[in-house]
Structure formats: structure tokens, C-alpha cells
């Protein structure tokens, strides 16, 4: 795997931007300044950054309730996302959607929405559109392990395969769906296997290793562009924060049911630290280079938060403005 220095540092910078975005929200969520339910992406950055590095602005992506990372990695701006999370008129959905409805059609982020499994068939539709128009676009659906409970995913796998649609199914298997450990939801932790009966090529990768995700996605996207889709990538990962909010202090009680030792073990596999070590070890980046990327991300996030704070909330008279076009 021979990534150029530039590709690798871009990948790293994207992950750092996502991390700083997420962690900057912890304070505002805890003080109540941010109310919209935030399902933080901290810990899973390698997936969005690694997969979407292969997507152009013309390619299409649909996300979920946990899509801050997908939005940024698809090219949405820090100001747009922050203003949306603060529910301001300047946000990507003009304050109508909040954290769970991130959209940037101008860069192919067609939308995120929190009905579990609900956007998988929408990404199928985007792939179908590309197929009919023959325009070589690829589409991706991001979803969690929990979404494999919904029937729509199997219907989508079958149809995508039947018509060889250019669609990448990206499962972020973080071992939990809300309060349910994966083994309370399904008898196997191996999710990629669900695609096999549909004759779909699958990859199962360490989702905390940005380079492995990047490599798998490179093959998957190439397959789709060559008209040999669909493709299915399972990324094994873990969320460092609560299901919703920083630490699942829902209704004031600490309710994260995950074993502390398990979380601690995963924290050691921090995808950002791992890529950092890899690059430093191979002298692909200097400590100063890393510090510069972090400083830049920090400044970008600070600017976006201050932009969000000084932006107006939607005016009450505009409540019904976007019901229909």
C-alpha cells in the first residue's frame, strides 16, 4: 500500500478535524447550550475519512443519526455543521434539522437521517440513478451494526446485486446499538457475511486503522466504478462516547452499560494516535507537521463555533417556509 505523503496527511487531517469537531461539542452539550441530540463520532473517524477519501463531490452519500464524521469527510464545511448543531439559520439545514439531519447536496452529501436503516434504500436509489444515467457516480450508505436488524437492508442488498449497482454498503460495527450489545441483537458478530448470499463482494477491516479502511474502500469503489458493484465493507470500530451525548448521562443518570475495561482497551486503539505513530515511525510526517494540523483544526472549530453562536436562530415567522418547494 503506497499512499503518497499528501494522501496520508489529508487522511490524517480529516480525522483530526472530525475529532476536534466532536470533542468541542462536549462542553456545549453539558451546559445545555446544544440541545439537539448529538451522537458523537469520536473513535470512528477512520471509517468516514478512509472511505470518503475515494469519493468526489459528484458521488453520493447518505448517513445516519451518527453522521457528523460523514458530513465533514464528504466535504461539508465546519461552519455549516456547527451552525446546524447549534440550530441556527446559517446551518446546513437552516436549523430545521439539527445534529441528525446533515445535508450538503453541493458536495454530494445527500443527507443523514436517524431512522435506523432508513437511508440505506435511499443510497440504493442514488446508485440506481447513476446506473440509469450511466454517469459513473458511486453512492454509499453508512449504517451501524444495529441497522442489520431492519429488513430494508436485505431488500437493498438483493436489488443492488441484481442490477450491479454502484453502491458501497459501509457498516460501522461498533458492537452496540443503543443499550444493546451486538450479541443481544444477533448471533454472529460477523456482519459482512450478510452480503455473501447476495453474491456481493465483502471486506471486513479494522475500522480503527485508517490505512486498512482506505485500502478496502479503494478496491470497493473501483469495483463499483467498473460496473461490478455493489460492495460491502464492514469496519470494526468502537464509539469512545455515549450512544447519545458525551457519556450517556441521559435524563441525568449515567447509563452507559459498556464494561469500563472494554472502553479502556478500545481507547488504546485510537485511530488518530495509530496513524500518527505510523507516519512518525516512517518519517512521513514530522511532529511539527502533526502539531500544525491540530492547530489548524482547532482554529477551524473555534471559528465555526463562534460563527454558530453569532448566527441567528430561524425566525418564528419562517416556521412553515420549507414544507414544500
Amino acid at each position: 500500500m503506497n499512499l503518497t505523503k499528501k494522501t496520508m496527511s489529508d487522511l490524517y487531517a480529516m480525522m483530526v478535524r472530525i475529532r476536534y469537531c466532536e470533542e468541542s461539542l462536549v462542553g456545549p452539550i453539558n451546559t445545555g447550550e446544544v440541545k439537539t441530540p448529538c451522537h458523537l463520532y469520536t473513535g470512528q473517524e477512520a471509517v468516514a475519512a478512509g472511505v470518503l477519501a475515494h469519493f468526489t463531490d459528484k458521488d453520493h452519500v447518505f448517513g445516519t443519526h451518527r453522521s457528523h464524521g460523514h458530513f465533514l469527510a464528504k466535504g461539508g464545511t465546519m461552519r455549516q455543521i456547527m451552525a446546524e448543531i447549534f440550530c441556527r439559520e446559517t446551518g446546513c439545514a437552516r436549523g430545521r434539522g439539527g445534529s441528525m439531519h446533515l445535508v450538503a447536496p453541493e458536495v454530494g452529501m445527500l443527507g443523514a437521517a436517524p431512522i435506523v436503516g432508513g437511508t440505506i434504500s435511499l443510497a440504493l436509489g442514488a446508485a440506481l440513478a447513476a446506473h440509469i444515467r450511466g454517469d459513473k457516480r458511486v453512492s454509499a450508505a453508512f449504517f451501524g451494526d444495529g441497522a442489520t436488524g431492519e429488513g430494508a437492508i436485505y431488500e437493498s442488498l438483493n436489488f443492488a446485486s441484481l442490477h450491479k449497482l454502484p453502491m458501497v454498503f459501509v457498516c460501522e460495527n461498533n458492537l452496540y446499538a443503543t443499550h444493546m450489545p451486538i450479541r443481544a441483537c444477533r448471533n454472529s458478530e460477523h456482519i459482512a457475511k450478510i452480503a455473501e448470499p447476495f453474491c456481493i463482494k465483502t471486506w471486513r477491516v479494522d475500522g480503527n486503522d485508517a490505512l486498512k479502511v482506505h485500502a478496502a474502500a479503494s478496491e470497493a469503489v473501483a469495483l463499483c466504478r467498473a460496473g461490478k458493484g455493489p460492495a460491502f465493507i464492514e469496519c470494526l470500530t468502537y464509539r469512545f462516547r455515549g450512544h447519545v451525548g458525551p457519556d450517556d448521562a441521559i435524563q441525568g443518570v449515567h447509563t452507559d452499560i459498556r464494561p469500563k475495561a472494554e472502553l479502556a482497551a478500545w481507547l488504546k486503539k485510537d485511530p488518530i494516535v495509530r496513524l500518527e505513530r505510523y507516519m512518525l515511525g516512517r518519517k512521513m510526517m514530522s511532529a511539527a507537521g502533526i502539531a500544525a494540523i491540530k492547530r489548524k483544526a482547532e482554529a477551524e472549530v473555534a471559528d465555526a463555533i463562534s460563527f454558530a453562536r453569532r448566527s441567528p436562530r430561524p425566525a418564528p415567522r419562517d416556521l412553515e417556509k420549507y414544507v414544500c418547494k
Binding site: A93, R96, R313, V323
Partner: peptide, 11 residues
């Protein structure tokens, strides 16, 4: 009103 639920608290 005949309108989906908005996010922003102002709405």
C-alpha cells in the same frame, strides 16, 4: 400547523 417538526428551539 401542517409542518414537520423543526429542530431549532426558536421554531
Amino acid at each position: 400547523p401542517d409542518c414537520p417538526a423543526p429542530a431549532s428551539v426558536s421554531l
